[in-house]
């Protein structure tokens, strides 16, 4: 037995979970447990009580909502890889989710858990920032509120969520017709947290030239980093060299805490490939 003693209560509904956490400031939500239980086993976390939300069926659902998809907080990482609707609507997340730990971790870990845990090396937070998702949180005290992904991640392991707030749903914009995506990361071994990684979305005009580019980096600082500015690709049909130059410019916005030059080099390689993959997919999706 590894964790310090605690009391366990299973929430039957989201409303129940919110009420239970409101009663007890020393309680913590337990979703998949793939981060919290490791911390508790190491006694880095010692909640007096855990409120188990992992089995909440009402949040283990996905809704196709025209230009966005609404994904519940208890949807497993694995579902991004295997659920046909999610794969079709957020292929970037399907690609990214494959890099999270191993199958057994992904069978248990939840979307709400990885977002609330806010590890700067985590894949799905970067996907949410890159796609411009919105998180919905609910608590007794504050009611419901919507938090844009870009404001949600505050620092290492720190999100905008207050301790009594339940992350309920995430609204993820789906890709437009002439958009393509790319996700690339480098880790020492498959399933390890990445040294650095990148996600990108490239959108084309009807004539096949670039209209917009959105990209972000993981594990280059204290939270997922959306990069922007730099040479405009608008109206271009960039070749590999142009993408590499843009990636080189963009990774300068990153300030990795350790081995900065090396991490930036790795991030640049990942970003170059993610941008190219996104562009190629946009082209074959009918940009031209």
């Amino acid at each position: 037995m590894k964790p310090a003693p605690f009391a366990y209560v299973r929430a039957d509904t989201a409303a129940d979970a919110i009420a239970l956490i409101d009663e007890d400031p020393d309680a913590k939500f337990l979703a998949g447990g793939q981060s919290l239980l490791t911390l508790m086993n190491l006694r880095l976390a010692r909640p007096a009580r855990v409120v188990d939300i992992g089995g909440l069926g009402e949040l283990n659902r996905v809704f196709d909502d025209a230009d966005s998809v609404l994904v519940g907080a208890t949807v497993r990482h694995r579902a991004f890889e295997t659920d046909p609707l999610l794969r079709r609507l957020v292929p970037l997340a399907a690609d990214a989710a494959r890099h999270i730990g191993h199958v057994a971790i992904r069978n248990q870990g939840t979307l709400g858990g990885t977002l609330a845990h806010a590890d700067p090396a985590a894949e799905l937070p970067l996907v949410m920032v890159t796609l411009g998702a919105t998180m919905y949180a609910e608590s007794r005290r504050r009611g419901r509120r919507a938090i844009p992904a870009q404001d949600f991640f505050v620092s290492h392991y720190t999100s905008e969520l207050e301790p009594d707030e339940l992350l309920t749903w995430v609204r993820i914009p789906t890709l437009l017709p002439r958009e393509g995506w790319g996700f690339v990361e480098y880790a020492r071994r498959h399933g390890d947290f990445a040294i650095a990684g990148a996600a990108a979305v490239v959108g084309l005009r009807p004539d096949g030239t670039v209209e917009r580019v959105r990209a972000g980096l993981l594990n280059v600082g204290d939270r997922p980093l959306l990069v922007s500015g730099g040479a405009s690709m608008s109206g271009c049909r960039p070749d590999d060299e142009l993408w590499r130059d843009l990636a080189g410019e963009w990774v300068r916005q990153a300030n990795p805490p350790e081995n900065a030059d090396y991490v930036r080099d790795v991030a640049r390689a990942a970003l170059t490939r993610a941008l190219r993959a996104a562009y190629d997919r946009a082209v074959s999706a009918g940009g031209e």
Binding site: A79, E81, R87
Partner: peptide, 20 residues
């Protein structure tokens, strides 16, 4: 090839690399 899909229902292997 990606790991084959599990629990995703029929046709789960469809779309990596395609637009909707």
């Amino acid at each position: 090839g990606e790991p084959a899909a599990r629990g995703g229902g029929p046709g789960a292997a469809a779309t990596a690399g395609q637009q909707r």
